[in-house]
Design a protein around this nucleic acid. Sequence first.
RNA 1: UGGGGUAUGGUGUAACGGUAGCACGAGUGACUCUGACUCACUUAGUCUAGGUUCAAAUCCUAGUACCCCAACCA
Length: 598
Amino acid sequence: MSTPAEHPAPTPADRPLNFIEQIIEQDNAAKKWGTWPDGTPRVQTRFPPEPNGYLHIGHAKSICLNFGLAKKYGGKFNLRFDDTNPTKEEQEYVDSITNDVKWLGGDFDGPNGGGLFFASDCFEQMYNFAEELIRKGKAYVCELSADEVSKRRGTPQIPSTSPFRDRPIDESLRLFREMKEGKHPNGSMTLRAKIDLASPNFNLRDPVMYRILHETHPHTGAEWCVYPMYDWAHGFEDSAEGITHSICTLEFEDHRPLYDWFIDAVNEGRTDDGRGPWGKKIHHSQQIEFAKFRPTYTILSKRNLLKMVEDGHVRGWDDPRMPTIAGLRRRGYTPESLRNLMEDVGVTKVESSIDIGRLENAVRDHLNKVAPRAMAVLRPLKVVIENWPEGKVDMLDFVVNPEEQARGGSGGTRKVPFSKVLYIEHEDFMEVPAKKFFRLAPGQEVRLRWAYFIKCASVVKDAAGNITEVRCTYDPATRGGDAPLNPDGTPARKVKGTLHWVSAEHAIPAEVRLFDRLFTAEEPGKRTGNHIDDLNPNSLEVLTAHIDPALKDAKPGERYQFERLGYFCVDPDTTPAKLVFNRTVTLKDTWAKVAGKD
RNA sequence: UGGGGUAUGGUGUAACGGUAGCACGAGUGACUCUGACUCACUUAGUCUAGGUUCAAAUCCUAGUACCCCAACCA
C-alpha cells in the first residue's frame, strides 16, 4: 500500500505566530467575536473559490491557512462557492473544487467544518439589502453603458461622472425591480453604490453592485437575471455565514474600504436590538490580506491554465505537469507534503516567490517516510552472470521500507527473483569509468541490492560499437548482499557501489512517464510577454521500464520509491493489461552533480 | 502622475528599542546494502542617506526599488 502509516501534519506549537494568528489571538483575548457554546472564542474562516476553473497550488495555501486557523483555534471552516458570475462558472468546477479541498484536508463538514455554502443561496437577501440601500439614498440605477462608464472614468485627479447619480429614489427602485424582472437587456443598466466619484481609490467611484445577465446559473438556474458584483456580495456572504476573519490575497487590499462601506451602509439606521426603522445590525467580519504563494517556473493564472488545457499543451487540468491540485495529486504528491510546505513557507504580506525545488523537497520528505520500495530499471542494460547456472532462480529477501526499519519498525520484506540474465540501469555502467565513478566498470565489483556482489568480466558490443551486454561473475558468498566476514566479524571486503536491478525473465513491462518542469524560465512569459514562448518542449518523456513483478497488481494512486531513481505513482490510465507510472520526483542525485561538474 | 502595499543571507521566515535567530539551498566531512535518508561543521543578511537614543532591523525625516488598482471579473 502507498500509505502504510498515518503521519499527522505537524502543528508546531513552538513556531512563532504569523501576523494573522497574532490578530486572532488579540481578538480572542478581547472576546471580539464572542464565543462558541462551549466558551471557546469564536473563530470562523472560509475558502471562497469561484467555480470557474480548477484549484491550483496557490489555492492550496489559502485552504491550508484557513482550515489550519479554524482547527488551531477550535473554530469552523466553511467552503463557499463565490458563484456570482454565471457566464464563467460550471458545475464541473464545483465538483472538482469540492473534491480537491477535501483531499487537501479542508474538512468543511468535519469536526472543524462550518459547512458548504453557495453565495447564490444569499441572492434573495442580497437583493433586499440592495433595495434598502436605494431607499437610504446610497445606491442608484445608472443607464450608462460599460463603454460610457469607462470614458467617464476620469483620472486620479479628475473625478468620474454619471448623469444618473441624482435620480429620484423611487425611480431607481422602479428600474431596479424592472431589472430583476427581466425587462431590460444585458448591459442596459446597472445598480451603482453612491459613494465618491472623486475618490483616489477607484474602487469607491460609485462601484457597480448589480449587472444584468440573462444567463443560466449552475446553482440557481433561471431564477435570476441580475447578479451581484464581488464587492457587494462578498462581505455579505461572510456576514451571513458569521465569518470572523475574512482572509484574502493582497490585491484586495484597496477593496477593503468598499467591503467595510457596504456593511456599514446596511447597518446605518440599524440597531443591536433590532428596534429601529431598519431592524437589527448585521455581522461585520474583518478582512485580512496575505501574500499569495508564487512558485518559480510556474504559471498560476486561471486564464492561462485554461488556455494550456484548451490549446493542448497539456493533456488536461489534471495533467501531472500542471500546478493544479488535481495535477499534483495525479503526479503523486501527498496532501501531507503540501500542508507541510505551506506551514514551512509561512504567512506574510511580503510578495515573495517560492523556489519550485521546495515543492519537490516537500514530497520527497514525506514519501521517503511512507513509500514502499521496489526496483525498476528505466533504461536497461543486459547483464549476464557467467557463473550462474542456466535456469536457476534464487528468491531473495527485499526490505520493503528501510526507513521504517531505521525507525525501529520491521520494514517488511518480500521475495525478489534473481536469475542468470538481469537488467541494470544503462548509466550504471561505464566502460571507461569517470573519476569517482564507483558503479559497474570492467574489472570493478559492485553490489546488486539485496542480492550478490558481481564483478564485470567483459563487454559485448554491436557492429556500431554500442554496448549491448555486460558479462559478469558473482560471488556466492555474498548472497543477500552482505560481504563475507573476517574471523573478527568485520566485512572482508567493501564495495562502494550498490545497484538496483531486475531479473530479465521475471520483470514486467510498465509505461513510465517522466516529467520535467513545464516551463524553462523562472518567470514564464517575462522575456517575451507570452508564457508559451517559455514552454519546455521536453516536459514529458515516456518509456517502457522493466519493473519488479511484485508490482503487477498495483492500483492507481499507489506510490512507490523505485530505489535510486525516485518516487513513482500509479496513474489512473493503468489497466489490467498495462501498468502506467508517473514519476513524482527524482531522488536527490549527488552523483549527477559531481559528474556534471567535470 | 494619484491611491494602496512591501523591503532582513541565494530563497522563505523570526526578532515587537537591548546578543540578528530558524528552515531550505549551497559547500565540506561522517555514516551508509539507495551517491538516498541521517548526522556534524561551514557559508551568507537588516534597501539607501541622514537623525533620535547609552543602545535602532525596530522610532523619526527624506529618498530608492518592487507589487497591486481606472471590468457590468473574482
